[in-house]
Amino acid sequence: MNIMDDLSYLRKETLVRKMREIHTDIIVETVRDMCISANLNLALDMEQAIRRAAETEDGKLGKQILGQLIENMDIAKEDGIPICQDTGMAVFFVNVGQDLHITGMSLTDAINEGVRRGYTEGYLRKSVVADPLIRENTKDNTPAIIHYDIVPGDKLTITIAPKGFGSENMSRVFMLKPSDGEEGVKAAVLQAVKDAGPNACPPMVVGVGLGGDFELAAKLAKKALTRATDSHSDKEHIARIERELLEMVNSTGIGPGGLGGRTTALAVNIETYATHIAGMPLAVNMCCHVNRHVTREI
């Protein structure tokens, strides 16, 4: 080893020592708890939205179904039974602070280990097959789907959104043209909702990703589902479209369970990104009334 190599090594050591460290044992434990918590307790905003809807729903069967959903949430909480038997594929949005140093195993391995423990120890359903065609169950609900973002700071923020596939299967991507405009966006979202109908277990939450490219639109649509039902886009014109679309969706008459009523959706959340001069990608990610999401900062 020559002297230059030795010095650069020392400099690197000093830098590393300044960084905040998290051991992956903490991440595994946190992810395990998040998996269980998300599947047993609906986020407060979702719970409140369903309770409010039950009071105002005027469809006869629709009202009855919302009543059953409230009873279901209460039983799930009291008896520790998952709200829905489809405890989903574990989808994560992870923000990694660029000044953070993670020790132990790889972050991805740690998240998957947390999923493995959470889904096994929490008696959650293992719904993942290793290969789309061979379809052999992995028996521990791994691998998870993990979206990473590098962000400023030294914190690790993990959001889990266990996603059921009854609604996932009704999701759509539309490569709209710029000339389709706002009307085109609304028509496509409405069409996706109508096609989904009872299959997506309404009342649904509609996640919309607008802009970016083919895959970013889809990712934004999923991310939109992790927003609270009573939140609005920061952009004024998008917040208006969210409101107008919710009204349009709730005028279809699909209703709870698809059996007629006003409450077809609890929210339409739109996330946007810059896009190309030639395009306007639009993704609609459907979620059922069991729209689960939990966020923890470490």
């Binding site: 279901n72 039983i75 008896d79 039974i81 009854g166």
Partner: peptide, 13 residues
């Protein structure tokens, strides 16, 4: 028949 989708805890009873 349809049962209520997403009411797994209730139906398990």
């Amino acid at each position: 028949f349809a049962a209520v989708g997403g009411a797994g805890a209730l139906l398990s009873k």
